[in-house]
């Protein structure tokens, strides 16, 4: 299996034998269940659809609940597809747990970053602030945003203040520090996008899941 769905729990540190402290994010991932298979022949691409966290039936509409009845599984809150090279080898109802990962392995993590609201250029685009003295009037202002009569417009993609965060973020090449198969926990080095209890998808690097 090329990936799993989980929730970010929080951060802590782990000491290694040689005494260095490793910052880790604890992720509770799985158990997920295979709810669907996408094959090259039928759908044009190979993938496995995973379901995570059981949902109460009354929270679902009948058409959505019917999808689960069709495959004979309990409804799930989250459904995500993961690209795989060999979708035929997966069966509906199959369990996917964190033991698909090994310590030391590199993974990609996808999540939704925390929403920061409307932020200025300094915070949003790492622009530098103006100097405070010598008559300067634009301390955190964007400054010049372009030329004059030619081109007489602001170029597309100009970095300006606006909404920051709350977007899909994918981090690549994060090492797995530890896998706790009993508790379904993954320890991934470094920070992950989003708030605690936020949804994250963890994928293996390379392969069909690219």
């Amino acid at each position: 299996m090329s990936g799993i769905i989980g929730r970010k729990l929080g951060m802590t540190r782990v000491f290694t034998e040689d005494g260095s402290a490793v910052p880790v994010t604890v992720v509770e991932a799985g158990p997920c269940v295979v709810t669907g298979v996408r094959t090259e022949d039928r759908h044009g691409y190979g993938a496995v659809q995973l379901g995570y966290e059981k949902a109460r039936r009354k929270t679902l509409t009948k058409p959505v609940a019917g999808q689960y009845d069709a495959v004979g599984l309990a409804p799930r809150k989250v459904l995500r597809e993961f690209r795989v090279a060999d979708p035929e080898s997966y069966e509906i109802g199959q369990q996917v747990t964190v033991d698909i990962f090994e310590p030391g392995e590199m993974v990609q993590v996808t999540g939704w970053s925390k929403g920061r609201g409307f932020q200025g250029n300094v915070r949003r685009h790492n622009k530098s602030v103006g100097r405070r003295t010598h008559g300067n009037k634009s301390r955190r202002a964007p400054g010049s945003i372009g030329q004059s009569a030619s081109p007489a417009k602001v170029w597309k993609g100009r970095k300006l203040p606006g909404r920051m965060g709350g977007e899909r973020v994918r981090l690549r090449s994060l090492p797995v520090v530890e896998v706790d198969a009993d508790k379904g926990l993954l320890l991934i080095r470094g920070a992950l996008p989003g708030a605690a209890n936020g949804l994250v998808m963890i994928r293996k690097t390379g392969g069909a899941g690219k």
Partner: peptide
């Protein structure tokens, strides 16, 4: 702090 994170943190104590 999440209980499961706390357990991992206090493991090294």
């Amino acid at each position: 702090m999440n209980e499961k994170v706390r357990a991992i943190r206090d493991r090294a104590v």
